[in-house]
Amino acid sequence: MHPLAEKYLRKSALPTMFCPGCGNGIILNAMVRVADKIGADGFSYVSGIGCSSWLPVMIKADVLHTLHGRAVAAATGLKLAQPGRRVVVFTGDGDCLGIGGNHLIHAARRNIDLTVIMINNHIYGMTGGQASPTTPLKAVTKTTPYGSDEPPFDACTLTTAAGASFTARETSSHPRRLAKTLERAILHTGFSFLEVMTPCPVQAGRNIYGNGDPVFLFKEFAARAVNNPDESSVSGCFRTGILHCESGKPAYSDSKSKMS
């Protein structure tokens, strides 16, 4: 076992339940590296329900694996109780934007000092491939057999508009960049939102991208990630990097703990 895995992973939760070719392991890897760099002792993790929400369960740390959609609400309570600790939320596109969307926008509005990592695989992975709020228009899923007739959310635009002081997007195809931006998100004071675009070869691959081969999908995600805002309007492309960063905006958890 890799020494970082030896040191930071919860062995009883291994092997992971992720399918072959899933991007979640890469994100777990990035998280462990960042925690190692900035001091793993100071972290608590919170997640909801979904494949993506199992990710922090594999970390040997204090972990609150909550209900579907409620991770951000539970994290709000935990952060207010322990303002000195870093609280990192793992959530999926369905967990975060569907059932939990209200908590997300209100946490962003408060600019509470949490880091929310939303793993966007464009699908309800855990339940077997149904449409999510980020499923592309026309995509065929188990619940959109004739093609989705709903436009998807842009989660970064949403959270920025709601008041988040940091929003960013990366892909699991670029692990080093991912770790760098993740570190920035965690070190940011205030609500930081990181969307990680990642392929779900099993549930989204063939239907949404026309190919379930993990190697093809990782290359495809790398190709679709663009830095230039103009290119992101090209269908299927998405902008990566830090999209919004306001330093100095008061963080809610700070003002609360000062009051008491």
Binding site: L64, A74, T76, G77, L80, A81, Q82, H106, K256
Partner: peptide, 26 residues
């Protein structure tokens, strides 16, 4: 009294925030 009051966005949030705060020692 040194405690924290928060008005949440709904009761789903309230009960879950409570759970988070409980594990935070309150």
């Amino acid at each position: 009294a040194g405690g924290i009051f928060i008005q949440m966005e709904d009761e789903l949030a309230s009960v879950n925030a409570m759970i988070g705060a409980a594990w935070g020692g309150l």
